[in-house]
């Protein structure tokens, strides 16, 4: 009886160690391949912010929850800002994470803008997250995200 109980315990431990090692291997392999094939939208984001970490949740993206036609999806982006000569939003970049070319547009404002808000219509290839990245006059970055479900993709084939 005692032997029978002891044996499975050792087996379990041996199994656990083996599984752990496998998981570690798989994990590092995953990290390596992620580095090699970093998504294009992340590269686009990095090329804009460098090493700065943007502040989350301050950019408002108005987009439909469900877009039936990905060819023309109405978009409004805005940021709360006094828009004075020394405190204003310089630009808002729009990134579509799952489009063949993730960079969609950059809207550039001036103190004369009065309000950091712009609207347009965009193409979305499939269901995805859209990112708004705002660049402030003091060099800070703000970021906002919104997911849009797309019924018919809009980038042609």
């Amino acid at each position: 009886m005692k032997d029978a109980q002891a044996t499975p315990r050792i087996d379990r431990r041996a199994f656990a160690t083996g599984a752990g090692a496998l998981a570690l291997l798989a994990g590092s392999a995953g990290r390596l391949s992620a580095q090699a094939t970093e998504p294009a939208w992340q590269q686009a984001l990095k090329s804009l912010v460098g090493d700065v970490k943007p502040l989350e949740g301050k950019v408002t993206l108005e987009l439909p929850e469900i877009a039936e036609n990905g060819n023309t999806v109405p978009l409004t982006v805005s940021v709360e800002s006094p828009m004075t000569a020394n405190d204003y939003v310089k630009a808002i970049h729009v990134i579509a994470t799952e489009n063949p070319q993730p960079g969609v547009a950059t809207f550039r404002f001036s103190p004369l803008s009065g309000k950091a808000s712009a609207a347009s219509r965009m193409r979305l290839a499939r269901t995805q997250e859209v990112i708004g990245l705002a660049e402030l006059s003091d060099g800070k970055f703000l970021i906002g995200r919104r997911t849009v479900k797309v019924t018919i993709g809009g980038c042609g084939g």
Binding site: V94, Q101, V104, T106, F107, S110, R123
Partner: peptide, 13 residues
């Protein structure tokens, strides 16, 4: 005086 500018990519309809 400059008011607004936009750089557009193919992702614009």
């Amino acid at each position: 005086e400059e008011v607004f500018k936009a750089d557009l990519q193919p992702g614009i309809s």
